[in-house]
Design a binder for these strands. Structure first.
Lengths: 209, 209
DNA sequence: TTGCCCATGTAATCAGTTACATGATTCG
DNA sequence: CGAATCATGTAACTGATTACATGGGCAA
């Protein structure tokens, strides 16, 4: 995932300042893009300018100075080449899912905390979905046919997420279920391992005390 | 997204070596987890051991030496505390979506390349979905009720992805559509900006040549 | 006149990867 | 007997964040 090319893509979409780029990544992307900081953007912009991929137009509009960047011919070519090249498959960093895989080992009986986690995720997803739904008619963002396809993806993903959350909460409010599969008795061993670790720790404390 | 805690979660799931942890992240996670390298894992394990969160049992089984790590009492407590704490909302780094938002600016007429991108993504998603579907009955992985909920999420996400890809390809094979929304004429300005950049570049070449 | 948004930038630091170095075991 | 897999580790580097430093415009 190339930050430089993502910046070129944003500038290709519209000429903008470093400040604008950060907003484009944060607000407009509505979590579609990932976060990005100023400390990262400005040095990149300088580098891209040095390489002749972008060009700054310094303005003094209203006394406030700013640099509006646009693509050069070289920048357009580079952007096109990147767009034609194959893309990395998106990687998911989902802390909640990681927790769920080991939930049975650490907090097997605590279903209510997991429900609370799902509920707070639901709130955030609903908020994002609301934004995404209004996006195509906000009278502000430029959205092409292709951009609309990307928005459709976001929307479908969020709707699926919400459906899954509701189903999961409903199940967690019901009776605990046995493991789906546990061929090497890993799951039944987890409470034993945990207890052993705590017993050992208590014993050591006693020995030292 | 804490790497240390994710490692504790994997070890809580089952005692394992540094090598195992990498596999757990890569193969078993099937792209659920993100990538992680040895150069990152081993120093972390050492640090976690120094902090007393994990303990190594050095074995010489079959002449081949390895360190099997398990959680200490402190490690279990730390894992539980992390699990109870709130989680970061998952961030998506989807190169293809970034490209699609600026596709109209850089390659407005080239629908076939975008279709090819979607098709290669479809192949990968189908492969992952196949893996995820077989996972709960592979007779190998331990899957609790909670783990199954996480797997359901992955599955739903991939199915939604595939549905979106098919719909998008179908639309791209049809007639080009006008922008959904373009309040400041950004989209209609893009070809102009692009042409201007190339004209300027050609002019400079002529001047120098 | 205070606080928020606009706007740019640097320096220290951190997290993680890549490349390198090593060596045993297992399977075809 | 060679290739793939199992297994551990370090050093150099890269990419990014955080914290800091600066300052104008605008609205309550």
């Amino acid at each position: 995932m190339s930050l430089d090319h993502s910046i070129l893509a944003v500038i290709g979409y519209r000429p903008c300042t470093g400040y604008d780029i950060k907003n484009e990544f944060e607000h407009k992307g509505a979590g579609l893009y990932w976060g990005i900081s100023f400390g990262s953007i400005y040095p990149r912009l300088r580098k891209l300018e040095e390489e002749g991929l972008i060009e700054a137009q310094e303005t003094e509009s209203g006394g406030r100075q700013k640099k509006i960047y646009d693509l050069t011919a070289k920048g357009w070519s580079e952007l096109e080449a990147w767009m034609r090249s194959s893309s990395e498959y998106p990687s998911v960093k989902d802390e909640l899912l990681v927790k769920m895989f080991s939930w049975i080992a650490a907090l097997p009986e605590d279903r209510s905390t997991l429900i609370r986690h799902l509920e707070s995720r639901k709130a955030k997803s609903e908020e994002l979905l609301d934004y995404v739904k209004k996006w195509p008619s906000n009278n502000f963002s430029s959205i092409s046919e292709y951009g609309m396809l990307a928005i459709n993806h976001l929307r479908a993903r969020l709707e699926t997420d919400l459906k899954w959350i509701d189903e999961s909460i409903r199940q967690l409010e019901g009776e605990p279920q046995p493991p789906v599969q546990d061929p090497f008795d890993l799951i039944s061993q987890q409470p034993v391992r945990r207890k052993t670790a705590f017993n050992k720790s208590n014993q050591e404390e006693k020995d030292n005390g």
